[in-house]
Computed example of a mutant assay.
Amino acid sequence: MNLVSFGLIFTGVMLNAAAQILMKAGTNAIGHFEFSTANILPIGWKLATEWHIVTALFCYGISVVVWILALSRVPVSIAFPMLSMAYVVNAIAAWYLLGEAFNPTKLVGMGVIIFGVIIISRA
């Protein structure tokens, strides 16, 4: 895999991770809600106008374009597993930015993911 291909995959992973963190920040800003017939429009409006969520959707849109570019250069059997690195990025970002728990079990799981991605990328 050349540097451009790696850069595209890395950018796609980071955009997906950013989108997830932004979605969580948006739902944190809105608070817990229940969907019901009575509140579909009010909650839908809150979701559609919450800047974190709008930015997350923008990140997803850009990531689709980046991902298409990546897939034009890298076999999907190598590229797709690399998306799992978003789990690692998200766990660290959620701990750092959102104060979510980070423990040895998550660290071991992230190590397994990283090891798996290394194995797949060398195949």
Rank of each mutant, 00 (worst) to 15 (best):
F35S: 13
P75L: 02
A79W: 01
V76Y: 02
T49N: 09
I68M: 08
F35A: 15
N28K: 13
S36E: 11
L41M: 11
T55H: 06
F58G: 15
F33L: 03
A94N: 06
L107K: 01
K46Y: 06
F58H: 09
L69V: 02
A70P: 01
K106Q: 13
A91Y: 02
L98P: 04
T55I: 11
V65K: 07
I78V: 08
L97W: 15
G31R: 02
V54I: 15
W67H: 02
G44Y: 12
K106W: 03
T105G: 09
I68V: 10
H32T: 14
V54A: 14
L97Q: 08
E50A: 10
L69S: 00
W45L: 13
T27G: 10
S36D: 14
I30G: 07
E100G: 06
A70M: 00
L69R: 03
V76G: 01
V89P: 03
K106R: 11
I43S: 14
C59A: 14
A38I: 02
S63Y: 05
F33A: 08
N90A: 09
G99K: 01
L107H: 02
S77C: 00
I68F: 09
T37R: 13
L97A: 13
T55K: 04
I43F: 11
E100D: 14
A38D: 12
V89S: 07
P104N: 08
S77Q: 01
F80L: 08
A25R: 12
P104E: 04
A48D: 12
L107G: 05
P42I: 05
P81M: 07
P75K: 03
A101C: 07
V76I: 05
L97C: 11
R73L: 03
T37V: 15
T27Q: 15
H32A: 15
I92P: 09
A86M: 08
A94G: 09
W95Q: 04
N103Y: 13
L107T: 07
F33W: 09
R73N: 00
T49V: 10
V88E: 07
K46E: 14
F102I: 13
K106G: 03
I53S: 12
I43R: 12
R73P: 04
R73I: 00
L107R: 01
V74S: 00
V108M: 11
R73Q: 07
S84F: 12
F80Q: 02
A91S: 14
W51S: 15
I40S: 14
A101M: 07
K46D: 13
W95F: 12
Y96M: 10
A38T: 03
L41F: 13
W95S: 03
G31D: 07
P81I: 03
F35E: 06
T27Y: 15
W51P: 15
T49W: 09
F58R: 04
N39I: 06
I30E: 08
A29K: 10
T37C: 12
H52C: 10
A25H: 08
L71K: 00
G99Y: 04
T27A: 13
S63F: 03
A38K: 05
C59G: 11
I78E: 00
